[in-house]
Design a protein around this nucleic acid. Structure first.
Lengths: 200, 200
DNA sequence: TCGGAAACATACAGTCTGTTTGTAAGTGAA
DNA sequence: TTCACTTACAAACAGACTGTATGTTTCCGA
């Protein structure tokens, strides 16, 4: 017989509380292992083992392994948006805001494992289209907004092409920084490129 | 002794010929199915079934499923390089060469399934670092070369940051085009961005 | 407090991967 | 040509994982 230590969490919980706690736990552990081993290398047996529950719990709260991954990715993109919004909220000057936003993006994407989840595994597992909806790469719509405002005469298709291409540049830069590259050159490079898009 | 009519495929083949034919077949069928269903969704039983051989043949020629995928990706990047080299070979003027190279890149990446293999599944399966070695995104080194030549005073780190970021923009543009987007706006956008990197 | 529903646990069936073992086909020297 | 050896492939096997079906416990509302 195993001795049961008094649980820090009260033994009697409401159903919604139980569910939320379980989901949070599975997502936290899932994130760890997905980052460690990638989506394919992460097995549900290991996930539930480290979370100290059974696969039954997992498949009760998530349709399948992909669904768990999707929830984790969504939480990650939400956090990313929050981080950037918080940092840029009190910046009035537009060009200053652009710089601050760029740095905020790099900083938030620098959270351990985030680049792998959002830029490597995400597109492969969920597909680029769903991923693009969730991730809204590099503030694509923000970029598009700035471009069309700065250059009202630019054909929309070209403005969109610029925004899409630039957003990819942002993502790739964020990835490089998260891999240990110096941030400063990338900030300068991206600012130069964005400035072109806005003025040229 | 009965005389046997020569079969279209000679029944008696040398070992090297047997091997090459088998590898080529497995890679061709593998490419099909990897593109259809992605790396994870493609099972080795289906691959060998469509190739009309057994899994024994597959595992004789390739270490594992990932190794087959790697060989396919490598063939794809080789073809990509060839395509671009062929198209840009007889263009002397540097700025003209840049435009031709850009279009050639988009054209070659537009081959069915190539973007998925090189930009979506490749990084997830082989990892971004190995993939970066194989793919050499968007002619990264070519870009870096052009930038450092055009702006000798630019700090190297910044030139590299520009090249890396721009190469990502190229890839993302190629992907958009392969998904049916108009090519022209992307050509214009990329040329504008590259020009910035060269002159700004 | 009691019947039902939600939250979980356990057991099972099917598929896939990589390895091992067995067989046929090619090769090179005598 | 033959015979030992190697290469190319086939068939069978073991382990792991995924998703589902079924059983048990915990909560909740009447």
């Amino acid at each position: 017989m195993q001795e049961k230590p008094a649980p820090a969490v009260p033994k009697r919980r409401s159903n919604t509380q139980r569910s939320e706690e379980m989901r949070a736990r599975l997502m936290a552990v899932g994130r760890e292992i997905f980052v460690e081993k990638g989506f394919a290398g992460a097995g549900t047996p290991e996930i539930v083992k480290r979370a100290e529950v059974t696969r039954g719990a997992l498949y009760h709260h998530f349709a399948d392994k992909t669904d768990l991954f999707r929830a984790i990715v969504k939480a990650e993109t939400d956090q990313l948006r929050e981080d950037i919004a918080a940092r840029t909220a009190d910046v009035a000057d537009p060009s200053e805001s652009l710089l601050v936003g760029t740095k905020a993006y790099f900083a938030s994407m620098n959270v351990a494992g985030r680049c792998q989840l959002l830029l490597v595994d995400g597109p492969a597992v969920l597909g680029p289209s769903e991923m693009s909806v969730l991730h809204e790469e590099g503030g694509r719509s923000t970029l598009l907004n700035g471009i069309t405002r700065a250059q009202p005469d630019l054909p929309f298709a070209e403005a969109e092409a610029l925004a899409v291409s630039l957003s990819a540049a942002y993502d790739r830069a964020a990835f490089a920084i998260s891999e240990g590259e110096e941030e400063e050159p990338y900030v300068k490079a991206l600012m130069a490129l964005v400035l072109t898009a806005m003025t040229a």
